[in-house]
Structure formats: C-alpha cells, structure tokens
Write a protein that binds this DNA or RNA. Structure first.
Length: 377
RNA sequence: GGGGGUGCGCCGGAGCUGGAGAGCCGGGCCAGACUGUAAAUCUGGUGACUAUGUCUGAAUAGGUUCGAUUCCUAUCACCCCCA
C-alpha cells in the first residue's frame, strides 16, 4: 500500500504539505527520517522514536543488515519490522551509499559491486537483483534502487558514465522488483534515484529518466557529499522541476536544518541524515537558539535547561552543566539524552515547517529562521 | 635518631648514569570536524614570547666541566628499611 496526497502548496516556494500512507502507517510530509542503519537508531529505543521524538518513519541499511545479522535471520524473524519491534513505516537504503563511503573496499562492474566486508574482509557481490531480493527479505515499506553515489568533485566523463550505470541498474532493479512479491503480506514500493553529480545537463537527463520509470516516489541522490550548499540547492531545485509534482520527492542524506528548510522550499518531501544522531553522540546539539557544543568549557556551570522548548522531557529537566558532565564522564546517558534532543529538534523543525506551509507563512518564517540562527548552513 | 632510594612542564609511565628536549607513550584538559552511519569516532592544541622563529626549563641553591637532567655539596619534599 502506498498513497501520496498533497494538502497544501505554498504560494511563494515549491514547498507543499501532504501525507504518505503505507501499510505500517501514515507519514505527514515534509518529514525527516532518523537513520537506524543496523536496525537501531543509535542510543535510542523504538518507543522513544514514537514519543517524544515523533518519528513517523526510520531508515535501515541493506548492506549493513545483510552483513549482520544476515538475510537468513531476518527472514526467520519475519522481517525487520518484527525483528526490531517497529510497527511504523520503514525505508531501507540499498547500499548505494556504501559504494561511495566504502570506496576503498569495493570494485564497481557492470554486473554489480564487489565489496570486501568492513567487518571481516569477506567478499560479497551486490547486483541490482540481489539488492532487491535482500530488501524484500528486510521488508521495508519503501525500498531504494541500487545506485552509484559518485564522489565530489567528480569529472564530467565519470559522472556521465556513472549515471548511465545507475540508470541501467535501475532498470534491472525495477524488473526484479516487479517480478517478485512481498514476503510478509503487505505491499512495498521502490524509489528510483536521480544521479548526475553537479552537472545540470546530467541531472536533467537523469531526472527525466527517473520520471519516466513512473514509480510511486522519486529520490535525489549524490548530493551532500562535499559540494557547496548553493550547488546542492540549485540542483535540488532543477531536479524538482522535472520530477512529477504528484509524487513524493526524497532528498537522500540531507542534511543540516538549513539544508532541510531549503530542500522543503524546492519541493522535497522526505529527508534523512545521520547528522542529528551522530552529532548528538559527539556532543553537538541543535536548538532553536542555534548549535551548541555541550563539551565546551563555557557550559561547565550553566544550570539552565538543555533546551526548555524541546519536546524531550530530558532536555527540559536536565541542565547543560549536567549533560556536559555526563559527556566528560563518558556516561552512556549523555549520548541518549543528546540523541533524544537532536532528533526531537529535527522532527519539531519539519513539523513547524508543515505548520507554516499550512498557514501560508512558510517563506518568511524560513528566511527568518535561517537569518536569525547559526546552523552553519 | 641512623641508613637507603626518588624528585622535569596538569597527571601517570618510559627513557636519560657527561654531548639536553620544551621530547616520547597513555590519560586529563582545550578546541575543531562530522550530511542515503566502517563513527560513544576522527583531527589539532596543551611553558613563555615580539611566533615558519626565539627564549626560559629537569625539586631549591651552589659547585666541577669546553659542555650537566646526568657527577659533587647543601637544603627541601616524598617513599622504604632499621631503632
């Protein structure tokens, strides 16, 4: 099951509110999706994702889950939803990002990618067909095509070649997906991914190719890999012009709070990023007053709440000095409190964006937020 | 009271028994980085200054020596043994 409905389109930008209905629940858009690579959003319990974070959908990763715990176990568990006791929507990334992030441990061929496991060095071949099969077994509501995420900078010839490969792999993904069926009694859907590096003509060609595959939703990949933010915004806007209005658009791996607000303006409906969760574990907190590094000495004796405006109770009741102490003492609760905080902030940010779009005040609100706060782009 | 041992930069350790070092390894502390998670990780800094260099420095004060963290003397602190 997969339905996308648009509620309201913003007058001044391409932003819109809406909802995605999946077999495991309804997702209001625009939405931020916390990343739970290994079947766990690090430092957070599933019940905390529901309350106070209000996550409506989270990510898993095909490559990581395939290596550990493996498809046999996931199959006997009845899929990832049951295995991790998450009864809400799930999306799995295909392993395309690992083609980029594990570049030193893989070889790209027409047939697929040969990986050396980062865990034990063993060799594994990922083909588009195999990635579809694995994602059938994992059982996420939304699954991603197997693509190559090229690095930045990337010369034109390579970007063009890589895009062609991603498109040929996409055809194979679609064919395999369409000729197989779900394993656990509910429908899954497959999102294709636009590539083309930072070259407008390649992005245009890729967006048209992806549009013409006519899937139920579309993704933009290969951004936030080190290119200037303005480049990301330009490409996102250009690609959104081509991708169908009536289908959800997913900007993969993005980003900072400002990246997300600009993405929403361009017409993006879905985001995911490790920044809020990873930065939380490293002591970086997002608040409505900007970014703070809780490890900094200036918070040593600050007995104000971590963030009185947070939806997370722990951020209201504990002080900055206490959280800093927990980080300095390397207490597990430090990372729990900080992750709870950052993910609550991200989900509040997109909730407020939806609210502002509904009210028709999104454009001025967005600009004032970006101007007044230091979110380091 | 007698004998022996050890003393260096925030801490611990190694090393140095005449050619030194603002040095090595941990830790702490201070910063920075992180974008579809090889990440509770990684990088840098941690005597002073007029700063790609210069100066001071090995418990404290002297001494021997071309040259001393190293040898000698005294003092101080701590540790061990004996009474």
């Amino acid at each position: 099951m997969f339905e996308f409905t648009i509620f309201k389109k913003d007058a001044q930008t391409s932003a819109r509110t809406g909802q995605i209905i999946t077999a495991h629940g309804t997702i209001p858009t625009p939405i931020f999706m916390p990343v739970g690579t290994l079947g766990s959003v690090k430092a957070i319990h599933q019940h905390e994702l529901l309350d106070p974070i209000s996550a409506k959908i989270i990510l898993g990763n095909t490559y990581h889950l395939y290596l550990r715990p493996g498809t046999d176990l996931l199959k006997s568990a009845g899929g990832l939803h049951k295995f991790m006791h998450w009864n809400a929507p799930l999306l799995t990334d295909s392993g395309g990002y690992q083609v980029y992030s594990l570049a030193s441990k893989r070889k790209i061929k027409e047939e697929g990618v040969v990986f050396q496991s980062h865990i034990d060095g063993s060799t594994h071949v990922f083909t588009p067909e195999k990635v579809m099969d694995i994602q059938r077994i994992i059982g996420a509501d939304i699954i991603m095509a197997f693509d190559e995420c090229p690095p930045y900078p990337c010369d034109y010839e390579y970007a063009k070649k890589s895009m062609g490969l991603t498109h040929r792999w996409l055809k194979r993904c679609c064919d395999r997906f369409d000729e197989t069926h779900e394993l656990y009694g509910y429908r899954q859907t497959l999102f294709p991914i636009v590539q083309g590096s930072t070259y407008p003509d390649l992005r245009k060609e890729s967006a048209e190719t992806i549009r013409d595959m006519n899937r139920q939703g579309n993704a933009i990949g290969g951004l936030s890999v080190g290119e200037p933010a303005n480049k990301m915004y330009e490409i996102t806007a250009e690609v959104c012009q081509i991708l169908p209005v009536e289908k959800p658009r997913y900007l993969m791996g993005v980003g900072t709070p400002v990246n997300i607000l600009e993405g929403i303006s361009a017409g993006i409906d879905m985001f995911d990023c490790v920044l809020p969760s990873r930065n939380a574990r490293h002591g970086l907190l997002y608040t409505w007053e900007g970014i703070i590094n809780i490890n900094n000495a200036k918070w040593k004796d600050n007995f104000e709440p971590i963030d009185a405006q947070s939806k997370a109770k722990t951020s209201q009741i504990y002080t900055k000095a206490y959280l800093r102490h927990l980080f300095k003492a390397n207490e597990i609760t430090a990372m729990q409190i900080a992750t709870l905080h950052n993910l609550s902030f991200y989900l509040s940010l997109v909730a407020e964006a939806r609210n502002q779009i509904e009210k028709g005040t999104f454009y001025t609100w967005k600009n004032s937020i970006i101007q007044s706060l230091d979110f380091r782009l």
